[in-house]
């Protein structure tokens, strides 16, 4: 058995990240659609662009922020690097590079999924069908995950796949929380209102966390409850803490099983993030500012990514990367 090439390690890591990203983009788009309605249910599509800070990129190619254009921008627009189709295309591109390594079944499913999106007519996404489309994307991503679990050979590359998926998931959960934060910003008095509760409800549902949350907390739902659950609940698979523990355990396991020299710096970063996630309470987080905390977590995840790159993918050492980490 030969050692895994650096290029493949990077590719499998990104394959997992892009599939996880596509799935979460669908989840966030779905919940965005709910958020951007006002209390009387009017839809303001421009606010979705604002939430995601995408106005500039959007208006490069469009004049009006109408429903059709905004939905297309986030789903099937290949010019938008953060659209669902772009994530899926990038996943397929990595899978193509990885063909010698991944199972044929993994390749076929991703290739077909990418072809389906490429040939999908715009009309398939008109407003009332958006939820169905988002479901379809989620299901395809989960099918990928299932096929991978069931067919992918368990060597070093399996660890890189798992690490990539967990780091992306942690990042996406912080983004989901941030979406809600931005929407709440203008008027503090809506906190606790029926609209507010229904929006937190939607956040939980979009992370498939509603039932899990209710098992932990049968009644009541505040911002602190939901944010605390999504950040710190170690038994919920999409929580930031669960993901960070996962990355950390898999990285240690990878290094010891395959006696790898590099990776100590990434583990140090992980330990630091882990200890904060273990010790801090949600009230302390909210006191200091949820958004600021989320920003800090995201920066930590970027550093972990850069250290992994330096250790295994042939990226320059972090000290030489300069501003690239920001």
């Amino acid at each position: 058995m030969h050692r895994l090439l650096s290029r493949y390690a990077e590719s499998i890591y990104w394959l997992a990240r892009y599939v996880e990203r596509a799935e979460n983009l669908a989840r966030i788009l779905d919940v965005n659609e709910t958020f951007s309605r006002d209390s009387r249910g009017w839809q303001n599509w421009r606010s979705i662009l604002q939430i995601n800070r995408d106005e500039e990129r959007f208006f490069e190619h469009h004049d009006d922020a109408d429903a059709d254009s905004v939905i297309h921008f986030y789903t099937l627009d290949q010019r938008n690097v953060s659209s669902i189709i772009s994530a899926v295309n990038l996943a397929r591109g990595n899978a193509r590079t990885l063909r010698p390594l991944i199972s044929t079944e993994m390749w076929i499913q991703l290739n077909m999924f990418s072809n389906t999106l490429k040939t999908m007519p715009r009309e398939a996404l008109s407003e009332p069908r958006l939820a169905r489309f988002c479901n379809q994307v989620k299901e395809a991503c989960q099918t990928h995950t299932g096929i991978t679990e069931g067919t992918f050979y368990r060597d070093e590359s399996w660890f890189f796949y798992q690490i990539g998926r967990a780091i992306e998931r942690a990042d996406q959960t912080t983004r989901l929380l941030d979406v809600k934060y931005h929407l709440l910003l203008p008027n503090e008095e809506t906190v606790g209102s029926p609209l507010d509760v229904s929006q937190w409800n939607a956040v939980l549902r979009s992370a498939a966390g509603y039932h899990a949350f209710r098992r932990v907390q049968p009644s009541g739902m505040t911002q602190a409850d939901v944010a605390g659950f999504l950040l710190f609940h170690s038994r919920f698979p999409r929580s930031v803490k669960a993901c960070v523990h996962d990355i950390s355990n898999r990285l240690s396991h990878l290094r010891s099983t395959y006696r790898l020299i590099g990776g100590a710096e990434a583990l140090e970063e992980l330990d630091e993030l882990r200890s904060v996630l273990d010790d801090i309470t949600i009230d302390q987080v909210i006191d200091k500012g949820l958004h600021e905390f989320i920003d800090w977590v995201q920066l930590k995840l970027i550093r972990i990514h850069s250290e992994l790159g330096a250790a295994y993918f042939g990226y320059p050492a972090l000290s030489e990367q300069g501003q690239a980490a920001d």
Partner: peptide, 28 residues
């Protein structure tokens, strides 16, 4: 590459040192 069970490499994966050829892996 799959039929033979050998790595599919690209030029950027290879390096020559002291007139010997190596491939870049996760462990050097």
């Amino acid at each position: 590459a799959r039929e033979m069970g050998v790595p599919l490499v690209e030029g950027s994966d290879l390096v020559v040192e002291n007139d010997k050829v190596y491939m870049k892996t996760i462990n050097g």
